[in-house]
Write a protein that binds this DNA or RNA. Sequence first.
DNA 1: TTGTATGCGTTATCAT
DNA 2: ATGATAACGCATACAA
Lengths: 348, 348
Amino acid sequence: MTRKRDTHRRKAGNATLSDVAAAAGVSTATVSRCLNAPQLVQQATRARVEDAVNRLSYAPNFGARALAVRQTDTVGAIVPTLDNAIFARGLQSFQEELGKAGVTLLVASSLYKADLENAQVRTLVARGADALLLIGYDRDPAVHEFLNRRNVPHLVAWAHNPDRAVPSVGFDNRAAMRGLAERVLALGHRRFGLITAQRVGNDRARGRWLGVLDVLREAGLDDSALTIHETTYSYENGRAGLRKILSAGDPPTVVMCGNDVLAAGALQEAREMGLSVPRDLSITGFDDIEIAKITHPRLTTVRGPHREMGRRAARMLLSLRAEPEEPCSYRLDTSIRMRDSLSAPGAS
Amino acid sequence: MTRKRDTHRRKAGNATLSDVAAAAGVSTATVSRCLNAPQLVQQATRARVEDAVNRLSYAPNFGARALAVRQTDTVGAIVPTLDNAIFARGLQSFQEELGKAGVTLLVASSLYKADLENAQVRTLVARGADALLLIGYDRDPAVHEFLNRRNVPHLVAWAHNPDRAVPSVGFDNRAAMRGLAERVLALGHRRFGLITAQRVGNDRARGRWLGVLDVLREAGLDDSALTIHETTYSYENGRAGLRKILSAGDPPTVVMCGNDVLAAGALQEAREMGLSVPRDLSITGFDDIEIAKITHPRLTTVRGPHREMGRRAARMLLSLRAEPEEPCSYRLDTSIRMRDSLSAPGAS
DNA sequence: TTGTATGCGTTATCAT
DNA sequence: ATGATAACGCATACAA
């Protein structure tokens, strides 16, 4: 009995397993074996099958395969945006590492919106992601519950908080900023400014702010020693932020910034206000992206190991996918890049 | 008769359509409709189904769905690397636009290697990509033949060459660089330097180089008027490139760079060599990424509409996927950002 | 409006 | 070594 497939609408004329089987005069099982376990099939028939495969430009149907094997060899990542050097860099190495294992990357961007991320988690899982990479801790706990119930291994990256239960690979933003703030304090600064990204919904930004606060409090300084300007991530906002902070009475001698782009803007604005950095005002950044070496003066900042983080996150997710062992967190270290935008205060 | 599914090994206890159906006391068809065409099902039953869906953390199985509808709602993109602001920016808007249409993005990076890209095209197609975005024209023509045979709509972006048959959305790198070179020439420069990325296998870099060459030839200048240094994309290589170019006899009065990062490096090196830019030497970039505003002096460069390109590429691919009409190319315009790193020569 | 039944293309378990 | 066939989970034409 001939299969009546011809009567069927097909999106495209792509050959199927049984087409190949028919052409080679074997069963579909044999064709499948030729593709997945060639050693199990005789040389002669294998040749016939391979010939048919080529003649028909056969390629396995992904959906069917995924359905049968119950695995897609795909992992998802949801980042706030790709258009931010630190995510791009980490994600690139994440993808490279996945690629080595024959796994491909599905990406979505949340644009820093919690509800969007929430929806995307579901989308990526529905799209068959075998595992998921998320950025930071701040989100509806229901997301993690959902992933756990669905048995989707997942990891938080770009952050590491020893107090949190969710497994992560990243660095402790609070501790890192504290380290830098300690250096600043040791240089003699007592009035601080901070230009930060939105802290609600962004634990990295919040951690960096708390790191500064920790140091000031430990030094016995009043909270009024810290002038905060909260804004969104951009060069222009860095400029505006600096202006705002300096316009207050009793201006700070150092302005710490939540990231390098804000710091670059602040630096530029300081110059245009006729201030000499670091003589009149010190400025620090965070992330150590390329621009940190390009500003004048070059930016003192904190370097996070983004490439290593991406690599390691990929490896952890891959092994979690293979064997659902107890996931564990991994903490990476940061280092301070002392360059030229920070010095002791009051040289003026 | 109870289904004997329980006896079956399942990778995970993930609920299926029929689990939901059972829990809600309806048929699988109704559940399916609730998910895909809610308006066709009564309010009351819909509520029951939705409740069951939530209780069971149900999410449709991707493979099964793809198999049934013969579509994955997934498109692929292969970029050289994510860790380059211009790809990151364009890809971000590409992804956003796809997301609006409920389509997710599969990414791979070729690291500028043709054979790797070749393999990734096959991988992404095998992964079920409904359509594919590629960067630039330089590749084995067999790739396009393969995609055509497999009926996978595809597009070239980040480049546009009217002479090429492959549909593209992007700008003409050669024409863009020619436009900038014309301005440079008009200012009086007659000895040019060029720091470029590898030109073989990279039509964008080659186009930018040819754009400079076009202008010099039209001006009747000898090819020796152009000193070329070819390297790979990095700040450090920009610095080294400038040193190299200036070390030759009869050094140029302007150094044009294939992108802003190389230009930023060149600028920095010029400063450290004690040169004043643009008084002693003019320098230009390409791309207009953020650092172009941060360098000192700020960089004169060419702006490419990366975000719009990403959006438009997404729309084209989506419509190509829906109805395989004749694909057509779209050319975007570039503009020149005159800033401070370019002036007339010989003021020194 | 809802349910029944079948096909989608592959893998894997049995036989042979 | 090879073949027949039952899942895999969902969508949809058709029936009710």
